[in-house]
Design a protein around this nucleic acid. Sequence first.
DNA 1: AGGTTGACAAAGG
DNA 2: GCCTTTGCCAACC
Length: 107
Amino acid sequence: MGKQGSLYQRIYALVQRIPTGRVATYGQLARLTGTTPRVVGFALAALPAANDLPWQRVVNSYGMVSRRRDGERDQLQRALLENEGVNFDSRGRIDLSDYSWRFAEDD
DNA sequence: AGGTTGACAAAGG
DNA sequence: GCCTTTGCCAACC
């Protein structure tokens, strides 16, 4: 592994730090880990079905749950978020100005 | 080694 | 604001 762990490990470590009831975008995590948004999505897709990460807290730049190629994971994601108090509007969007995670070194 | 494929994003129309 | 293009880069043939 690299000096600071693999790229995927850095992404996962960051996802782990997103607080309950908050969301981060793929682009935000990409900037913080020095990669591109697509790779963040690819890293999350590589997670096993059962994992310890709050993976549901990662959404796209429009504040929407991104659709998977298969499965009902996106529905589960919305349910989990609503369960922790995140509000979706009639078009299925989250108001990022209210719910986005503000990263700080001392979190 | 080269082409394809994404849980994306920004810019253009 | 929606839809389409373009850039992106790691993974997987």
